[in-house]
Structure formats: C-alpha cells, structure tokens
Nucleic acid binder design. Sequence first.
DNA 1: TTGAAAGCGCTACCAT
DNA 2: ATGGTAGCGCTTTCAA
Lengths: 340, 340
Amino acid sequence: MITIRDLAEQLGVSVATVSRALNDQLGVSPELRQRVLDLAAEMNYRPNVAARNLSTDRTHTVIFMVHRRRFPAAADPFYSYIMHGMEASLSLEGYSIMLLTVTDEQLAQGPQSLPALQEKRADAVVLAGPEFLPGFILSVARLGLTTLLVDNALRETPFPAVLADNEGGSRTLTDHLIKVHGHTHIAFLQGPKGWISCEERSAGYQFAVNAAGLESHIVESEDTTPETGQDAFLRAIKDRPETTAIVASNDAMAIGAMRAARQLGIKMPQEMAIVGFDNIFWSAYADPSLTTVSIPTIEVGRLAARLLLERLYGTVTASSRTIVATQLVIRNSCGCMEAA
Amino acid sequence: MITIRDLAEQLGVSVATVSRALNDQLGVSPELRQRVLDLAAEMNYRPNVAARNLSTDRTHTVIFMVHRRRFPAAADPFYSYIMHGMEASLSLEGYSIMLLTVTDEQLAQGPQSLPALQEKRADAVVLAGPEFLPGFILSVARLGLTTLLVDNALRETPFPAVLADNEGGSRTLTDHLIKVHGHTHIAFLQGPKGWISCEERSAGYQFAVNAAGLESHIVESEDTTPETGQDAFLRAIKDRPETTAIVASNDAMAIGAMRAARQLGIKMPQEMAIVGFDNIFWSAYADPSLTTVSIPTIEVGRLAARLLLERLYGTVTASSRTIVATQLVIRNSCGCMEAA
DNA sequence: TTGAAAGCGCTACCAT
DNA sequence: ATGGTAGCGCTTTCAA
C-alpha cells in the first residue's frame, strides 16, 4: 500500500505539501501540484479512508435507515428506489451509502440500540418511512448526525424532510374521476393513521370531493396491501352500494380492490373505476391497467442526497420540507382509453 | 466524545488494559475487566470506528455491488431482498453493508473506476448478478478484498459463489407439467445467454424434457421482462402451434406471456399452461395465479453474509459454490386447483 | 497481569 | 509556497 509519505519521499517534498496538492488546497505552486498529481496517478496512489476519517472526523458515508419490513416491501420496492437514487448521486461526490434496517424493538429502544449510529459510522442519516416517530427522530438528531426524513415529517417541529406531493397528486387524481368521468360517489381506501403519505393522499381526495360538492366516503385499513385493499373495497360497497369509483391509498390496495370487484362480477371500469397511487411497475399489468400517480423515486433520492450534502457543507440552513412533484398516469382503470 | 483514555484515567489504569478489556482479550484480571466494562457502560462509551479501522486495517464493512439497472429491478426486487438478508445477518456481527451500483462504463473500465473499492472502504465485497464478467471479478479479487459472487459464478476457475438451485427448481417445475398435467409439448422461454441463472433453468427444463422422451423447444430472448416474455410467447406458438405449456425463465416473462395469450383469446390454464420462476409477490395476483418456483432470497443473503465472515476470519478456505434450495409453488396457471 | 509507547495514514496548525 | 510536527483514537508489541 502506497501512502503520501511514499509520494513525498519520491518527490523530495513534505507530506504536508503532498496532502495539500491532493486535496486541492491552496498553498502549492501549480507545477509542484502537477508533479504530485502525476506521481500519484503513476504510482496508483489511493488515500487511506480510515486515516482521513480519523483525522477529519468525517466518514463520507450516509446511512439509509428504514424499517426492516419496508425494505424491500414485497409489493413495492419504493425505498429501494429511493436508496438507489441516493447512491447514484452520493457516489458522484465521493460519498458512500450504508443500509441499516431496524426492527420494531430497536425502534422502541431508540438509537442507543443501533451501534452503527452510535459509533458514528456515518456523517449523516436518512430516516425513510413513516415508522420513525418524533421521539426517535429527535434522539437521532441529538446524536449529532445530520438527519433527514424521507416519506415522513414532523408535524410541529420544523425538521428537514423530503416528500412526494401526495396531496396534490391525490387531488388531481380524484379530480380526474370527477371532471372527466363524472363520478359522484367516490370512496377513498385509507391506509393507517399516522402514515403521513396516506394522510396527505386522503386530504387531497377530500379536497377534490369537497370542492365538487360531493360527499366524501373514507374507508379505513390497517395496512396498504392487496389484502387490505380487497377487504376495504368490500366494506366500501357494502356501506354505500351507490359507489362507482374508488381511490386507493396506493396501487397495491387498488389491485386488491380490483380482485374483489372481479370476484363479484363487477365490470371495470364500466361499473367501477378504481385508481391507485405510486405507479408501481405491475400497475401497468393490472386488468384493466391501472390509472395512478407516479412518484419520481429516483429524483426523491437525488434530492435527499443533495439536501444532505448541502447541510454537511453548511451551504444551506433553512427550508424544512421539500416537496417533489408527482404526475398523473392515465391508463384504463379510470375509464379512459377503453378502446385501446 | 469519550475515549478509552477517559476510561483509563477514571480507573487509574492504562489505555492498553482498557482496550484489552473492551476487546475481550486475555491478560486482564476478571475484576478489573468488569470494572472497565461497567464504567464503559455507565459513561456510554462508544469506540471510534475510524481509529479502530486505522490501526487494525479492517473496516467491518461489506460492499454490496450490483449493476445499476438491477437495483432495484422494477419488476422484481430480487437483489434488494438479498441485500436485505445480508444486512440483517451482518448487523448481528457488527458489520455494516454499503450499496455500490455500477454502470456499464464502470464495468468496462474495471475496478479502477470505483473509488469505494480502491480506497478499501470495505473488507469484503459481494458481486451480485450476472453482469460481472470473469475479467472484472478477478481484478476485484486481486484488489485484496474478500470477494463473493451471488447469482453468478465462474465456470472454470473455482471461485466462492452463492446461487439458488435454478436447475433443480426448473427440473421439478417442468416435471410437474409433464407428470401431473401430461403435457408433451412444452416450450422454454430462455433469457439472455451468459446469465447463469437463466442457463441453469434452461438446463433443468431440458433435463426434465429429455428424461420424459419429449422434444425440447427453446425460444430465446434478449431480456427477461414482461415485454420479452410476450414476444417470446408469440414466437413459440408460431414456431410450434401444438405447444400447450410454457416454462418461462422468470415470473416477469411468464406474466408477459400470459398477457399475450389472453390477447389471443387462449384460455388459461385449459388451453395453455404457463409457469414462471422466482415467486415474485405479484405472481400470486396474476390471472390465473402463477405456478412458479420460490427462491429464499433472504436466506441467500444470510448465507452470503456467513460465508463472507467465515472467510474474513479464516475459519474456512474451501468450498466454492453454495447452492440454496428452491421450492415449487403450485398455483393455478399450471392447471392445478382449477376449482379454487 | 499491567503499562509504556510506537505506530496506523492523514490533516492541519504553526513556522519559516 | 513549503516544511515540521502534533495529534485523531485505537491496537499491539515489548518490557516490567
């Protein structure tokens, strides 16, 4: 293994100079700098990360923390995508990303139970998903790591967070059912209370429905899987048989609802329009193909990476929530393009 | 931040002793050891990883390397699952896992283009997926990192690798179509040449078909997506209209084939049985639900982690390939349980 | 069993 | 612009 000492000796200069040249710091004459760089390249020099970490107290590493159940979610690798987006961005800046999945027990015990965090293996940490509660979040932040929430947020305390525009997307989606297809009895299949994305989607639905002077109809669920979607659908039409359209909290629920509808012999989209959220890969393969809202997950990850780096370098202090635009994806399940 | 020096001073002993006590090394009297441990706990001492890394030349980190296109694969988060399994196991041993996705250019340029590898940010590296070619693999290994292949293998050189029992799974699956359902004209939708898992699945199919005295019928594809499955299916039945069953290289292709069959008005499973491989979440939601072979991805990850740690600790030297058993998952698309 | 001290490779401060 | 050098916190010889 070759070190800056080797380079320094070869060139007959001090290690300090070599270090400066290598780190692009001022105080080195252009020609000497070039000689250092050339020799480093020639000798295939690689900095020792551990040594640099020790003396700078920086690791150039970010921890991506997510609940173990959610990575990957069987039905939807949402967080895998976000991590992927982060990795691609971070690697460009010389940063690495570590995966840390946490169990319910660890969540309950707090960050003390997470050695990777305590040992400061990273400069920053992303907490992805709604499982992280305020108490946990704040204790992580208190550890001294730069902390960022993704697909989650604190309600009262301002805290850096990146989220999709769930409310806007849901409003647009619901509006589409109302304005384009003329539905007047639309139910919303709501996911668990406390999952911010579900609540925002619910809010978007309600806004659209209220604005149109329609009655809202919210059916609650404990989860957002096909199974719970199926179940919620059945309750929805039992409650109100006049229902002709369903907005599900996500695609998985929507696909479950479709299955339930099909089993009852309900024609889709003619007798029942069903739409989802997330635009998972398989939503295009549902029958009828699912109208939904897409979230640019890679972009969410890219943004998270950028925000983190900005905060690490002190470029920026303010701005708590960052909202990423979503987009309506029209397919067949809303009633559009039936000819296709 | 509290260091071993703080502990040493508090206790009036040397840092060497504290270090030994903390690292469970011999040469410390039981009572002193206990006092050290107690104080460490009381003062909430956390070792500085960078310092330890520097002096031991170990990082207690593993890099999970995968092609950028494959993480996560939109249709099937196969590698996300494996990484997840690895993380869960590694964290128990105090190891962390880093994600490193690589592009085609980086693959072509070799490990030189990957700073994370060169800088020895990890003790070991897993190369997951068939995109890593022998030259690349061997140069990574030459870097001095403990290297392990997952869902890939070298053909000639013995090299540590973990794979699912693709051949066995595929043989069992094909056998099921022959023995239970009496099919005599079964086509195999083959994925790209060079993807070892696809080739093994192909071999399993051929073995079963030959053993039954049937003719094999292999249809090639450039990828293993629903689109390529759809296309391959059409070519298969055009080639041989007598075909009554399809074994696809994976579930995504199988679902694509189903779509093509449905568009042609072919009844499934009565007129056409279609089966897949991987048991992705959505395969249960296909119509008819997909008979397939499940791969215990979490277990694959767990095994990979264990093999890596064993090699890091020099417990084991031999054994190149490790094969993980797969399991037949019977649903409706093969013709079983039609009543259900 | 315990302690002293020499590094690990790099950064950054203080001189020159 | 360049050099000398003191750490960063820990592990690990070597002595006692």
